[in-house]
């Protein structure tokens, strides 16, 4: 990775982090757990990295496959559980 490229990515990192800090504000306590669960599903974005790892090679590919299974569980399970929580929430109201 060239140093220019790295600095560009650092800009992205800083701006995205600031955005993340600002996104959460005055969350009602009932939404704490769903929000945590929802952003947990989003952190499953590693699924993209796992797919990119399964290209060639031997053991590196197997590791990518293990990563992909775990990441998919994180993503699919995460969104499904969050949806269930929020559904329950609506019924109560």
């Amino acid at each position: 990775m060239s140093i220019e490229n790295f600095i560009f990515l650092l800009y992205i990192l800083v701006l995205a982090s600031y955005c993340g800090f600002e996104l959460i504000s005055k969350v009602p306590p009932t939404l704490h757990t769903p929000l945590m669960s929802g952003s947990n599903a989003i952190s499953g974005i590693t699924i993209v990295g796992a797919i990119l790892c399964i290209q060639e090679g031997e053991y590196s590919k197997y590791m990518g496959m293990v990563a992909l299974v775990f990441a998919t569980i994180n993503v699919v399970g995460g969104y499904a559980v969050t949806d269930r929580m929020l559904q329950m929430f609506k019924k109560k109201k």
Binding site: A16, S17, C19, I24
Partner: peptide, 13 residues
């Protein structure tokens, strides 16, 4: 970007 979003918002939460 997505990792940073979750990382930062997670700390605030």
């Amino acid at each position: 970007v997505t990792g940073a979003l979750v990382g930062a918002s997670g700390i605030i939460l």
